[in-house]
Design a binder for these strands. Sequence first.
DNA 1: TTTGTTTCGGGACGATCGTTCAGGTAGTTT
DNA 2: AAACTACCTGAACGATCGTCCCGAAACAAA
Lengths: 186, 186
Amino acid sequence: MKMQVDGRKARGNKRRAEIIGATLRVIERDGVAGVTHRIVAAEAGVPTTSTTYHFSSLDDLLIATLISCARDMATEVYWMIDRARSRGSRGAEEVAGLLAEALGPRRGRTMAEYELYLLAARKPELRPAARRWLDVLTSMVRHDDEVAFRVFLAGIDGLLIQGLIDDEPPSADELRPVVDYLMKPR
Amino acid sequence: MKMQVDGRKARGNKRRAEIIGATLRVIERDGVAGVTHRIVAAEAGVPTTSTTYHFSSLDDLLIATLISCARDMATEVYWMIDRARSRGSRGAEEVAGLLAEALGPRRGRTMAEYELYLLAARKPELRPAARRWLDVLTSMVRHDDEVAFRVFLAGIDGLLIQGLIDDEPPSADELRPVVDYLMKPR
DNA sequence: TTTGTTTCGGGACGATCGTTCAGGTAGTTT
DNA sequence: AAACTACCTGAACGATCGTCCCGAAACAAA
């Protein structure tokens, strides 16, 4: 196994990461529709040709962004569960809080994630990445009841996407009874 | 109240409807990103200037399309429930079948609906239209348990959006146990 | 018929788009 | 040192974009 020693490649990877970050910010602000080479380059503070050099096409850029975004989300979910577990949390309380956060302060990010989600519906090569956070969850929690777990996952997605078209984001207090019902064993 | 008698306006309304229909087909095929005046006009078989004449901007066109789409969906849901009710259906069976249909033969339409849904997340003026089918459902079914009903609606949305990124659409048989669990009173 | 209103559509304008190219720079290898 | 590789970037090309203009056509009211 060879380590990264080439300074040129190191810079290249760094810039790639910066461009991906800029792309995500553009999607949060203007949606996938607002992603162009020039806009992303301006957001990243690099010349336009830099984005076309590192990503062979706009599609490649979006794909790389989705994959990066999905990876971040997966590790976030991982640590979130880990943290909740070590605290012996009941679960519903935590989940309601996270949903409220996703629909409030992190609303732009949540919209971006679902736009990339829908992009995966049209581009099969994106689907493994889009499913990753589901997989992480699936692999981490026990499934004594698989059906109940699928219902839970679907419910989370539904609450998020419906919360996005509310005139004002629902609070954790409003979400708690719904999440509680969703997680209650029966 | 004056009835529609002016032949010119009648033609105009007809063409407007054709353009909206063409827009929906374009969204089903290429996504919201594929909607341009020229493409929609070509799909509708009208000159490019016709779409700009009847809709003051591209946004207006998308808004009108979403509203039309939401209205269609609402009346569909209405009659679907009506039909199921007159048959004394159990419900879960019907719902699983509808989901399978939405993710199979009508997959393009379902994608279009969710893309317009997400558009509503960014454009507040679209939200009432996007919420309409939820409202129709809410007004038609008894809610002895409001929380359970919200969970049901969220679950449906979640199953749909997750089904869109499956490599192959889930069958009604696969969906049935999940829907059954979702609708089971507890 | 005359006058007014509404729809129709060809053509064009400036802006922005994705992408390419060629020359230049920095870092690595021999 | 020279040769090689990888990254950088200004300039430009052709295509497509949203939108506007303006005269023609269809229809209604007078």
